[in-house]
Amino acid sequence: MAKREFRRTVAEKQKGLRLDLYMFRSGMGLSRSQVENLIRSGLVTVNGKVVTKPGYKVKAGDEIFAEYELPEPFELLPETREDLPIIYEDEDIIVLNKPPGVVVHPARGNTSGTIVNALLGRLEELPETGDRTRPGVVHRLDKDTSGLLVVAKSQRGVRSLARQISTKEARRIYTAVVWGRPPIREGMVEAPVGRHPIDRKRMAVTPFHSKPAITAFRVKEEFGRVASLMELELLTGRTHQIRVHMEHYGHPVVGDPVYSGRETRKIFRVVPPEEREKVAACLEIMGRQALHAARLIITHPAKNYRMEFQAPLPDDMERLLEYLRLSYQKSSEAATS
């Protein structure tokens, strides 16, 4: 890691810009999200005083200072992957059904085996997005979340898709299995999401250094009091949003290793203790979070018509639902016999 110093005086023509945008545009070598994290971490001063709000509006004459480390650049290597699960492709976009366990884009310590590496092997180049490690990437899925991912193949695609996601014109709808039986069948979880105050690798519902986050949900099927099949739609797009919101709501995603989906102490707050055998069976089936990006609705960047894509559930979630349906059917039959 190379140590860097950032020292600038805000010019008259730049006054009124957000602090994170001003610093990003000044060529620090960091992505805007990295600049934002730098500010929130208290590593940026304005006129000698620490400022932790990325939205601070800079004034002419402000003295901005920061010390930070710049990761050594790594090369984005194209890779050949014959089983790239492409659902749709044209000159502007490519839509994939991402398998669980695959990372979307390279990062420090994980520079190969990603969707971006495979796409570079197929297409040779992808359009810039402002972050050299994420060419063409306008939204992401967690490594162990499966389902639909749209990647831009042109600058027109980048601009259009980024705008659609920002304005909520694009719709991203997920299928999940959660523990327990939610008290209402349809509603919204509206709670701000930010970095966990202690464990910085996790996200959390917190009022500190967070952003508004809204998830709409609908219960589609209940399996006694053990688990529920849900449809969830992102109305905002925060990191780990659905997983964090379901934990906060008290019904973690089944199998989630980070957000209480494998923590029996929290599972049995919403699942009766006599269902221990079913809980253990569910955890044996799901080695990851039972979360799948099932539907994606966008407007085509060039042709301007709406497009809807659907991806079937992966095998592990199908097996989980098969087990739950069979178990619930047997329980119902036993109760009525």
Rank of each mutant, 00 (worst) to 15 (best):
L141P: 03
T145F: 05
T145G: 06
T145Y: 06
G147F: 02
L148T: 08
L148H: 02
V151W: 03
V151A: 07
A152T: 02
A152C: 13
S154C: 07
S154Q: 10
G157E: 04
R159D: 15
A162L: 09
Q164W: 01
Q164P: 06
S166W: 10
K168F: 15
K168P: 01
A170S: 07
A170L: 12
I173K: 08
Y174G: 01
Y174A: 02
Y174W: 06
W179Y: 09
G180D: 12
R181G: 06
P182I: 01
R185F: 07
R185G: 15
E186L: 01
E186T: 14
G187E: 01
A191T: 13
P192D: 06
P192L: 10
V193W: 06
R195T: 08
H196P: 06
H196G: 07
P197A: 05
P197V: 12
I198Q: 11
D199W: 07
R200Q: 14
R202I: 12
M203Q: 14
A204E: 05
A204V: 07
V205W: 00
V205L: 05
F208V: 15
H209L: 14
H209I: 12
S210M: 08
S210Y: 03
K211D: 15
K211R: 15
P212M: 06
A213D: 00
I214R: 13
I214H: 02
I214K: 10
F217E: 00
R218Y: 04
V219K: 06
V219A: 14
K220Y: 00
E222F: 15
E222L: 15
G224N: 11
R225H: 14
R225T: 08
V226W: 02
E231M: 02
L232E: 06
L235R: 13
L235E: 05
G237T: 14
T239Y: 09
Q241D: 12
I242S: 01
R243D: 01
R243I: 00
R243L: 07
V244S: 10
H245C: 04
M246R: 08
H248L: 08
Y249V: 04
H251G: 13
H251W: 13
P252H: 11
P252Q: 12
